[in-house]
Amino acid sequence: MQDQLISLIAEELSVDKATITLDSDIQKDLGADSLDAIQLIMSIENAFGITVPESEIDHLKRVGDLLQYIKDHQ
């Protein structure tokens, strides 16, 4: 699951997979702006079959946050 998530992030944000760690901050480290970050979450919803409520998105800053959220909600 972690590999799938990282591949998806690399593709959506056009960044090298090798630069992505669980500690990477989507916006500060991976160069996404706030709308890229939302777009990424929407792609994750489709890929993993989950729904992220609008009230949750402010808490999903790092790759590890996303992974944990997917694990908890899939």
């Binding site: 706030s34 709308l35 970050a37 939302i38 777009q39 979450i41 929407m42 609008e54 998105i57 402010d58």
Partner: peptide
């Protein structure tokens, strides 16, 4: 809140 409005609108 731009990101949340963006998510609502896109969906």
């Amino acid at each position: 809140n731009g990101p949340r409005v963006y998510q609502f609108a896109s969906r």
